[in-house]
């Protein structure tokens, strides 16, 4: 038998494909699927989560470590502002407690399920008027009213289930799924933040008769930029814009700005 040398043609075992096109198609389809699935499941999860009774919510909330951090504030301007707001807010199923974490330098505040508003020391140092304090407290009351924590809990469970189904791996497809899921979750979260802002503006208007000074909070340098289009919170510009539009729409006016400074005795204990 004779050997006849011939060259094997290219492209049989490694056919030339449009790599970029295929990549774009697959990535796009995957992201689209996750976004659609998560939106649908997120809405469903939220609808179910808010059915939890206030008693259960309070019981869960009391067990969270953040619920008991810091010191409880029972007197002082901060407490007085909260009480004034509560008088004009819809009734909750529980008492609302104010706590301050004096050692924390971040400019932030949050509500814990079951009726606690926790304010970080950095926020009290950054704000310069009682109007801002009222806005921040009212915003947190808004989260409580809308039961945003339960919604976030429901969404978190859905996200975890989705990720577990796809396969926990550090490979790229899993990361893309997780990233997309988180991005959609953050859109929900941003919507909640804007809703809480609206609640806060209305509550401040009802309590004080005007909304002067509430947007000053977003201009405080210590706040820096607290949000981004992929983040949990919308950008400050967007939040201020919403508040201004709301005020225009309802004809709310500005009013006197009462200066505020944190009393040294607040964190003395």
């Amino acid at each position: 038998m004779k050997y006849v040398p011939k060259e094997i043609p290219e492209g049989i075992n490694a056919p030339r494909t449009n790599v970029v096109g295929e990549f774009a198609l697959l990535a796009g389809t995957l992201v689209a699927l996750v976004v659609v699935a998560f939106y649908a499941l997120g809405v469903a999860a939220e609808t179910l989560a808010v059915r939890l009774s206030p008693e259960w919510e309070a019981a869960i909330g009391a067990r969270l470590p953040t619920a008991n951090a810091g010191v409880e504030v029972r007197a002082g301007r901060e407490r007085e502002v909260l009480v004034a707001l509560l008088a004009h807010a819809p009734r909750q199923g529980y008492d609302v407690q104010l706590r301050v974490r004096c050692g924390e330098k971040d400019v932030n505040a949050f509500a814990v399920p079951g009726g606690r508003v926790v304010v970080l020391g950095g926020l009290l140092d950054a704000v310069q008027s009682e109007n801002e304090v009222a806005f921040v407290l009212a915003h947190e009351l808004g989260h409580m009213q809308n039961r945003d924590h339960l919604r976030a809990l429901g969404r978190g469970l859905v996200l975890m289930t989705l990720v577990a189904a796809v396969g926990t791996g550090s490979d790229a497809a899993s990361r893309l799924v997780v990233g997309s899921g988180v991005a959609v979750s953050h859109r929900f979260s941003q919507r909640q933040e804007l809703a809480a802002d609206r609640f806060a503006a209305e509550l401040v208007q009802r309590t004080y008769g005007h909304v002067g000074g509430i947007t000053d909070f977003f201009g405080r340098p210590a706040l820096r930029e607290g949000g981004s289009w992929l983040g949990t919170h919308p950008g400050s510009k967007r939040r201020v814009l919403q508040l201004e539009r709301l005020a225009d729409q309802h004809g709310w006016g500005t009013g006197p700005v009462t200066p505020y400074a944190r009393a040294p005795s607040l964190c003395a204990e």
Partner: peptide
């Protein structure tokens, strides 16, 4: 009769 070497798929 003739051979052409290794082929693979």
């Amino acid at each position: 009769v003739e051979h052409y070497g290794l082929v693979s798929g």
